[in-house]
Design a protein around this nucleic acid. Structure first.
Lengths: 219, 219
DNA sequence: CAGCTGAACTTACCGCTGTCAAGATTAGGA
DNA sequence: TCCTAATCTTGACAGCGGTAAGTTCAGCTG
C-alpha cells in the first residue's frame, strides 16, 4: 500500500488529485526502462497506484494517452536541438551538432523516440491531437530555421528550404532508426562492416549531406 | 468449408500438405491489406483454413513465422534494387534510380517494409534466423556494390565504402519511414510545407546526398 | 494387406491485453 | 448540510499469443 501519488508523504486517497500528469510522467519513466511494444496500460496504472481502468477517466483510450506522452517527447527533442544551436556559431559545426543531438536523443531514448515516429496511429489521428502536431512542427521548425539562416548567409545553396529540411530530417531519422533497431551491427566493436564507431559514421553521414547542400561558390 | 489448401479443386483434408508455405504466402497477402500491428496469428490461420494452433507445428512462435516472411520481403526488396541497377548505365541515374526503387518498395509495401525494419525482435534474435541475416546482407550488398563501382570509376570520392552505404541507407530508410508513417504531410496535395510532390522531394534528397559523396575532381 | 508410429492438426485452456458498464467514493458548490 | 458530478474501483468481455492433451492420418514395416 505504498507508492503515494503526489508527494511521498501524502496518504493514498480515493481521489488521486493529479492522476493525469502522474500517468504521463510515469509513462515517460516506463519508456526509459522498456520498449514501446511492452508498454501496458495496466502496468502503468498499477505503478501509479490506481486501478487498471482509472486512466479512462482522463484519456479516451491508450492512443490518446500515448499522444500526450509524445507531446512531451517532442518538447524534449526540441530541447536537445535548441542546446545544439546555442552552443555553436560556426555553421558547419552547428549543422553537425544539431544532427548529432537529434541522433543522440533518439538513441538515448529509443522507446520514446519510437513512440513518436514509428507509431502510425498518431499521425493518422492528427486532427484529434492538435497539440501533437504543434509540438512536432516546432521541432521541425528548429531544423528548417537553422537551414534558413545558413542559406541566408550564403553558406547553403539556393533551393526549397522545406525540401532541404525533409532530406536532412530523413537522414537523421534513418540513422536513429537503423541504430536503435540494431540493423547497424557495430557500436564500437565492429565485426565485418568496417564503419568505425557509430559516432564517426553519423558525423560522416551528416557531413556528406551538408556538402551536398552547400553553396558551390563557397566550396 | 471452402478455402482449399494446395489447389482450389483439392478437397480439404485433415493434413494440409503444405501449410508452412501457405502460411508464409498468405501472411504476405495479409500484410498488403493491413498493417503489421494488426497482423494476427489467429486471423492468418483461419484464412488458410486451419485452427489457430496449427502454425505452431511449423514455427516456434509468431516471431519465427514473421522472420520467414521477412526473408521473402528482403528478396523482393533485392529484386526492386536489381532492376534499377540493370536498367541504367549512367552513374548518377543509377544511384538515383536505386534510391527511388528502394523508396518505392517501402511505400508500395509499407507493412512488409515495417515488419523487416521497424521490428526490434528480429535483429535481436539474429542468431536464430541466419537466413534473415543473409537476405538482409544481400540487399545491403547491392547498395555497397553499386557504390563501389561508382567509386572505382572515379565518380565517387575516396572513403570508407560501408560508411557511404550506411549514410545512403539511412537516408532512403528515413524517407520511407517518414512517408509511410504519414509524417510528411504532402503527397501531391501539399498544404503548408511547399515540398512539392513526394517523388520530387525524394529525388532531391538523393541528389543532395550523391553530390556530397561525389569526387570533387569530377564536379 | 494389416498394424504401427510419428508428424500434423484440433480442442480446450491459461494469462494477458484494451475497453466498457455499473457501482462506490468524495470534493466542492448550492 | 446536502447534492451533484467527477473520479476511481470492481467485474466483466472479446481477442491475443502460447501450451497441453487428444485426434487424425500418411507412410513405413512386417
Amino acid at each position: 500500500m505504498k507508492g503515494c501519488p503526489v508527494a511521498s508523504l501524502v496518504k493514498r486517497t480515493y481521489h488521486h488529485g493529479d492522476l493525469r500528469n502522474a500517468l504521463v510522467s510515469e509513462a515517460l519513466k516506463l519508456l526509459e526502462e522498456q520498449g514501446a511494444a511492452e508498454f501496458t496500460l495496466r502496468d502503468l496504472a498499477s505503478r501509479v497506484g490506481v486501478s487498471h481502468a482509472a486512466p479512462y477517466s482522463h484519456f479516451e483510450d491508450k492512443t490518446a494517452l500515448l499522444a500526450a506522452v509524445a507531446v512531451e517527447g517532442f518538447h524534449r527533442l526540441s530541447a536537445y536541438l535548441e542546446q545544439a544551436v546555442q552552443e555553436n556559431s560556426d555553421p558547419t559545426e552547428q549543422f553537425v551538432q544539431m544532427g548529432e543531438a537529434y541522433v543522440r536523443f533518439g538513441t538515448e531514448h529509443p522507446a520514446l523516440y519510437n513512440l513518436i515516429f514509428a507509431n502510425k496511429e498518431l499521425p493518422e489521428q492528427r486532427d484529434k491531437f492538435p497539440e501533437l502536431t504543434e509540438a512536432g512542427s516546432a521541432a521541425f521548425g528548429m531544423l528548417t530555421g537553422m537551414l534558413g539562416r545558413m542559406q541566408q548567409s550564403g553558406f547553403l545553396r539556393e533551393g526549397n528550404l522545406d525540401g532541404f529540411g525533409f532530406a536532412v530530417w530523413a537522414l537523421v531519422h534513418g540513422l536513429v532508426s537503423l541504430i536503435t533497431t540494431g540493423h547497424v551491427e557495430c557500436a564500437g566493436d565492429c565485426a565485418d562492416a568496417e564503419i568505425g564507431t557509430t559516432e564517426e559514421a553519423v558525423r560522416a553521414s551528416l557531413l556528406g549531406m551538408l556538402h551536398g547542400l552547400k553553396n558551390p561558390a563557397t566550396a
